[in-house]
Every structure is written in C-alpha cells, then in structure tokens.
C-alpha cells in the first residue's frame, strides 16, 4: 500500500483570500485521491533480468504465479535458467528457498547473482515435499522446487493456489534441473502454469582465442541457450529467444595459463596452497 507523496501542499484555508465552497470541495477530492490506498502494479512484480522478462511477457515475476522450467531431452541449460529466475528477486532483498534439488550448484547460483544470505535449501524433503513447499510459500517470496514423479494433479493445483493466495512465486523444476542428465518424461503440472520455459538448444563458447576442436585448450566461458516459453496470459502464446547464460562480462585469459599450475609431485616447489 502506498500513499502517493504530497507533491504540492494542500490548499490552506487560512492562506486563501476567499476560501469558497468550490475550493473546499476541490481540496477534499484532492485529499481523497491522495489517501486512497493503491497497490501499484510494480509492487506485485519481483525483479527479473530484461531478456527473461521478455520471455515471460511481464516486466517482472508476477507474485502469485507458478512457472515451470525444464529442458528438452538431452539439452542443457535448465538449471542455469532456473537459478537466473531466482537472481532478480534475491537482489531486491526477497527471500528464496530451494526444495528437493540437492544437485543444484549453489556456487553457480551465487555467480548468477543469487544472494546466498537470502537463500535456504531443503535438499531432502523425502516424501513430504508438497507439504514443505506449501509451508515455505507462506514465508518466502520465491520457492524453487522439484517434486517426485507422479505428483497428483490435485496437489499441484493446490500448491499453485497456495502460491497465489500467499503472493509468492513457485518455480517448478522439471526435466534436467539439478540432475546429472536431462532425461525422463516432460513435467506435467496440474494446471497451466503462468509460463513454461523449455531450453531447446545450448551452445558453449570457449574462452577467447581458443581454436575449437583442439583438445586441452578452451575453458568454457559463456553459453548461448535457446528457450521456448509457452505463456498463459501474454500474447503471442509462444516465444523463442536466445539468451547468454551464463555470461562473463570480462574475457578470461587465454587458455594457455593452465600449464602454469604448480606441478603436483614437486612438493618442495609447490606454492603454498590454502590452509585447508
């Protein structure tokens, strides 16, 4: 709720030379306008990187919505995409929870911009993932969760309804998110999610100057991933976009530096490694 700031002083009864009835009425209507509680649309939106916003079709993640993120069979990129969705709200001070995804790389999450201080993880909710997610939706702004296969459609609908009621965002992790391989059936969710994001292609770029195809050079530097979004409300219904995810602002050094790592066996000359 926001009361718009008082941009100009209210007409003062004492100050005006002849405070007619009309002035009074104008002042009252102005006052009423200012005091009317308004929920601005932008308060209902959580932050989102611009390219992702274009995919979803709203300038931010709409509170109360449910999203599905998954990869096409054998394609990469779904985990990074899911983490990138968390990054925007976390940067604004929102709280995040990750449920049932023990394999998600949290270092990568930090690199993508997720503030770790605002994140909690429930790696193993066992058979109670639905109950855990339902509880977390009450207190967290955004919950990324993976459910065991065969989640009843009714439970899925109930969770979406809970997210809507609690003004939280539920991101359901499908095929490939936090898993060693992107295999298995496509995720079915009880009701049509606000948007279903599917990564359909992914190409890694190597560090600059690395002739591709030559073994032993070329550190991974950035990746282009193609995402298809099927949206429920925005038009057109389906959009396809290429994103750089992850991307590095500054180019890393050419791959030749790798040889300069201290030789393993020569302990006497090895640099002092961290006091681990």
């Amino acid at each position: 709720m926001v009361v718009p700031p008082l941009a100009e002083p209210l007409p003062d009864a004492k100050g005006a030379a002849a405070p007619g009835q009309r002035d009074e009425r104008a002042a009252f209507s102005l006052l009423a306008q200012r005091l009317r509680p308004t929920a601005l649309a932008r308060e209902e939106l959580l932050g989102l990187a611009p390219p992702l916003a274009e995919l979803i079709g709203t300038p931010g993640l709409r509170r109360g919505s449910t999203l599905v993120v998954e990869a096409a069979p054998g394609v990469c990129g779904a985990s990074s995409l899911a983490l990138a969705l968390l990054a925007g709200p976390a940067a604004e001070g929102g709280t995040c929870a990750i449920v049932g995804l023990p394999g998600l790389g949290l270092l990568a999450a930090a690199e993508l911009g997720v503030a770790l201080e605002q994140l909690v993880v429930v790696p193993d909710p066992g058979r109670r993932s639905a109950a855990v997610v339902a509880a977390l939706l009450e207190g967290f702004d955004i919950v990324l969760a993976r459910f065991p296969a065969g989640l009843p459609a009714a439970t899925a609908r109930r969770l979406s309804a809970r997210a809507k009621e609690r003004r939280a965002v539920l991101i359901v992790a499908g095929r490939g998110v936090g898993a060693p391989t992107a295999t298995g059936p496509a995720l079915s969710w009880g009701e049509a999610p606000e948007a279903r994001l599917v990564t359909v292609a992914s190409t890694w770029h190597e560090a600059s100057g690395a002739p591709s195809g030559t073994p032993l050079v070329g550190l991974l530097a950035g990746r282009e991933v193609e995402v298809v979004a099927r949206r429920r409300r925005a038009a057109p219904e389906e959009v396809r976009q290429r994103l750089l995810l992850p991307t590095l602002e500054d180019e890393i050094q050419p791959a030749s530096w790798r040889v300069e790592v201290a030789p393993a066996a020569d302990s006497a000359r090895a640099p002092r490694t961290g006091r681990a």
Binding site: S79, G103, G105, L107, A108, E111, P180, P246, L248, I252
Partner: peptide
C-alpha cells in the same frame, strides 16, 4: 574460473 557448474551431483 567462473562459470561454475550449475549441477553438482552429490
């Protein structure tokens, strides 16, 4: 160096 892998199986 970055980027770190987004999946770290345990």
């Amino acid at each position: 160096p970055a980027p770190a892998p987004a999946v770290v199986p345990d």
